[in-house]
């Protein structure tokens, strides 16, 4: 089970990185979503996957009788999912605004904040 999860994490990371290398900011965003979920799956995997038994301690005992699921990684992932969902919503809107303002979703062409140096302009630096 852990091997399968580990391979899935690797494949998702690879797919995410491939998408993020694109000039297209929309694909970059999709890549970010995929790699973010790969990170969540990584937390679940390294947190030890002990199966589906709920982590409940029977009455009168101090430890569960059998192997139970580790609840902490699941809590961490839940937090991470909520945060990344909020950020994703913000980023999609930001990208849409960028498309409205600049008429492009190509990262290479977004040069409003850092204009390319004009060759005919005599500046101190160039």
């Amino acid at each position: 089970m852990e091997a399968l999860l580990a391979i899935t994490v690797g494949a998702m990371t690879a797919a995410g990185v491939y998408l993020m290398l694109s000039w297209n900011m929309m694909r970059f965003l999709f890549g970010l979503v995929v790699i973010g979920n790969a990170a969540n799956l990584a937390i679940l995997t390294v947190g030890r996957h002990y199966g589906p038994a709920p982590p409940l301690v029977p009455d009168g005992q101090t430890a569960p009788a059998e192997l139970v699921a580790n609840a902490l990684p699941q809590a961490l992932i839940l937090t991470a999912i909520v945060i990344s969902f909020g950020i994703l919503a913000f980023t999609v809107v930001l990208l849409y605004r960028a498309y409205e303002e600049m008429g492009t979703i190509s990262g290479d062409d977004m040069r409003v904040a850092e204009p390319r140096p004009q060759p005919d302009q005599s500046t101190v630096g160039s």
């Binding site: 900011m25 965003l29 990170a39 937390i43 980023t91 930001l94 303002e101 040069r111 409003v112 904040a113």
Partner: peptide
């Protein structure tokens, strides 16, 4: 200009977040 700067700021910082999360894991 703010939107343009914001795109770069947001996207690179989100990559850092993912790295941080994987390291924590």
């Amino acid at each position: 200009a703010q939107i343009d700067g914001g795109i770069k700021y947001v996207s690179i910082n989100l990559i850092s977040t993912v790295m941080f999360l994987i390291a924590v894991a």
